[in-house]
């Protein structure tokens, strides 16, 4: 979620649609919206109201400076985990 919003600000419905194209990472609305609210409460995201061409103003979410820091820290952790799993799958106990 933080990675998606680090590219550009977005809104809930668009994020759900985007995640639905990411295969195993797809998450339903009932997972995404509570998580977005949590990230906002933690100060990792902030809401911005933007005029919408389709109707009433739309609430966009954008990543904060704290969110970017968290993203960097978590990216390192995920990369390490991914590399470890890859090594383990390739070489078993010799990894």
């Amino acid at each position: 979620m933080l990675r998606i919003l680090s590219d550009k600000m977005s809104y809930g419905y668009e994020i759900v649609a985007l995640l639905s194209r990411l295969g195993p990472l797809a998450a339903g609305e009932n997972t995404v919206y509570p998580l977005l609210r949590r990230l906002r409460n933690e100060g990792l995201l902030e809401a911005v109201m933007v005029e919408s061409p389709k109707g009433p103003p739309r609430q966009y979410l954008q990543i904060t400076a704290v969110g970017l820091e968290q993203l960097a820290a978590r990216s390192v952790g995920w990369t390490e985990l991914k590399d470890s799993v890859s090594r383990c799958l390739e070489r078993g106990s010799e990894a």
Partner: peptide, 10 residues
């Protein structure tokens, strides 16, 4: 309001 917005977007 978040969920209302989602329904409107859908």
């Amino acid at each position: 309001a978040d969920v209302r917005g989602h329904i409107a977007e859908a």
